[in-house]
């Protein structure tokens, strides 16, 4: 039986160590939350696919976690390759994690030129009446980067607030941009994945 293939959209999480990238990943993957004492750092998280339906169109978001490489070393450049979107994550209760975003942004535009960029302030539940990162600062940041930020979200992985909304909105943005880009895409840009499957992914001649 023939099945229609839903296009996969690679989305990567970027940001300082400890801002909650893996927590966002867990919320996305199985809607769970583990407290800081219940885990060490990122272990065993790779990527996860989830289908969203936007305007009667199915779109598969494939979310990637860093694998914890940013803890002491830098992330490999191949992490960024082929990504359609990047979520820059900072913690609303940690100004430093916000101030270092420009470096992460630079990595994204260098290694994933075509990725749409989104901003996510996490740990909304920890934000006190005196916010560490103000809305004005967030706005100023978006202006500074010449409005290449496609969307700004505030989330709490602890309560789950804002997570689904963020991914649905990102899915919407990607469907919109794919529509306008579809005709520009040439097969030449892409290679194929190898698999143990005996069938060849290309129509090679079977002589």
């Amino acid at each position: 039986m023939a099945t229609t293939k839903i296009p996969e959209q690679k989305i990567i999480l970027c940001g300082e160590y400890g801002v909650g990238k893996s927590s966002i990943f867990r919320r996305f993957a199985n809607n769970t939350f583990i407290t800081a004492t219940g885990r060490q750092s990122t272990l065993g998280l790779d990527h996860y696919d989830k289908v969203y339906n936007v305007q009667d169109k199915d779109i598969k978001l494939q979310l990637w976690d860093t694998g914890g490489m940013e803890r002491v070393a830098s992330i490999t450049s191949s992490y960024y390759k082929f990504s359609e979107a990047a979520i820059l994550v900072f913690s609303l209760d940690n100004l430093t994690s916000f101030n270092t975003l420009s470096q992460h942004l630079l990595d994204v535009v260098t290694y994933a030129e075509n990725a749409k960029i989104f901003l996510c302030g996490n740990k909304l539940d920890l934000q006190s009446s005196e916010p560490q990162v103000s809305d004005a600062e967030i706005e100023a940041f978006c202006e500074q980067c010449h409005n290449i930020i496609s969307g700004v979200y505030k989330t709490s992985c602890k309560t789950g607030e804002g997570i689904e909304k963020m991914f649905y909105d990102i899915a919407y943005h990607l469907v919109e941009s794919n529509r306008s880009r579809l005709e520009l895409q040439t097969m030449d840009k892409h290679g194929f994945k190898i698999s143990s499957n005996e069938e060849s992914p290309e129509d090679s001649c079977l002589c």
């Binding site: 065993g44 998280l45 070393a73 992490y79």
Partner: peptide
């Protein structure tokens, strides 16, 4: 250069610590 990076990610995901 993508090949070593792929295996480095595998190692990191299984708990390997990286220092450059």
């Amino acid at each position: 250069g993508e090949l070593p990076q792929g295996f480095a990610r595998l190692s990191a995901i299984y708990g390997g610590t990286y220092m450059l």
